[in-house]
Design a protein around this nucleic acid. Structure first.
Lengths: 222, 222
DNA sequence: TAATTAATTTAGGTATGTCTAAAATATTTT
DNA sequence: AAAATATTTTAGACATACCTAAATTAATTA
């Protein structure tokens, strides 16, 4: 198996396509890639051609893009690197939750298998990153991801916070204030029709969170 | 103070020019840069123009290149990153002495001051890297470097190994076999005229090392 | 379903960092 | 000091990864 070496750009496209495709299941539009990478659609078209030629994606003109098996494999390795570096930055270097993503974006492109495997060992083979996202192992195997958010629960139901979508500082501060983190138990007290906000119980305190916030906090039902 | 952002290439040139210039004191030739970076002289000329325009180096056509004060400052920060990463790879990730350089070459270009300062703290502000090379601090201050090698000692004199030049695996294996590392005390027993090799005492064992080897082991006289 | 709008692709252009070949300059040898 | 050699620079090309503007195709609306 020849280890293909991709450029930083190619890696970023591949990762984005994987993320947009819902783990490879959906077709991805040129525009969505353009938006997520902040690159003009015309340039995205160029790169799509390039990645297609390398059989990392399949593309039908004007229809959409699908990531190939091989593409998924590579994307998962990039994601593995990204998330392991996030754990390192958070646990060892005392980075804040909202500061890790940007630096991990750079570190993930450092290409040394030895580096990442030793880092994995050093961190004691973590299963999730600080946001709660699962870390693929060396073979690309990855745990199931919770897709249910607080917003999907009904009144009276309980859940444990498992993932937090979004690496924005404001959101981070809000969660801090609310004392919500990975592992926190929440219970739905009420759903406010008027603005779709939700009243929840955290550590015996009741708070109201907006729909957007509720949707960005994924949970495991209890 | 506007923080100039340099490309990976620019950083590599600057670092090489600094290293070739003996900490900024000597003129550097286009050919020497070409050799060390494995890039054609014509391309080096191009980059010299670019770095000159940014006032990181001074250049006189056909004469040579000198690194500027600002250039030195930046070069020292790149070297700082490189050496801190080497310490990390060696001490925390169990990389071998001869494996660290290559990976550090990549890591040194990750551009986050917070990252490098936190790493520095995490490693407890090391003064030297695993080769014995001094690590510049945040302000670019750097310790004096030993320039005397085992080869420069006279019969009967003693020294403590302080730096090892060269990141080659074969050399690494040899030093391992000879039980020579940073901090080892050596004493000159004899200088063999015939091939310029040197007989030295290490831990009460006498061994003979070649001139090249002796020159690549820097020491502090005792 | 025809017209309008939106999405995508193509065509042609730019900066970066490399290259080879040729020209200019400096150094060494005779 | 003239000739030969070595070094450095310039000129012109190329790949990568972007861009804008225009053309093509698909989707939506009237």
């Amino acid at each position: 198996m020849t280890n293909i070496v991709l450029s930083k750009s190619e890696e970023n496209y591949l990762k984005s396509i994987y993320n947009l495709s819902d783990s490879g299941s959906k077709l991805v539009t040129t525009n969505s890639i353009s938006k997520i990478l902040n690159i003009e659609p015309a340039s995205v078209s160029d790169m799509i051609k390039k990645l297609s030629k390398k059989n990392l994606i399949y593309h039908q003109k004007y229809k959409g893009t699908q990531i190939s098996k091989n593409g998924i494999k590579i994307a998962l390795q990039i994601i593995r690197k990204h998330r392991l570096w996030e754990v390192f930055l958070f646990e060892k270097l005392n980075f804040k939750w909202d500061e890790i993503h940007e630096v991990a974006e750079e570190l993930e492109h450092v290409s040394s298998n030895q580096l990442i495997d030793n880092l994995d060992k050093y961190l004691k083979y973590p299963k999730i990153d600080p946001h709660g996202d699962p870390i693929p192992n060396k073979l690309g195997e990855i745990d199931f991801v919770d897709k249910i958010s607080i917003y999907d629960l009904n009144i009276g139901q309980k859940g444990i916070v498992s993932r937090i979508i979004n690496e924005d500082e404001e959101f981070f501060n809000l969660l801090n204030k609310l004392k919500i983190e990975i592992g926190t138990e929440v219970k739905i007290i009420d759903k406010i029709e008027y603005d779709s906000s939700i009243e929840i119980l955290i550590n015996n305190r009741s708070v109201i969170i907006s729909k957007v916030v509720a949707e960005n906090i994924k949970i495991t039902k209890v």
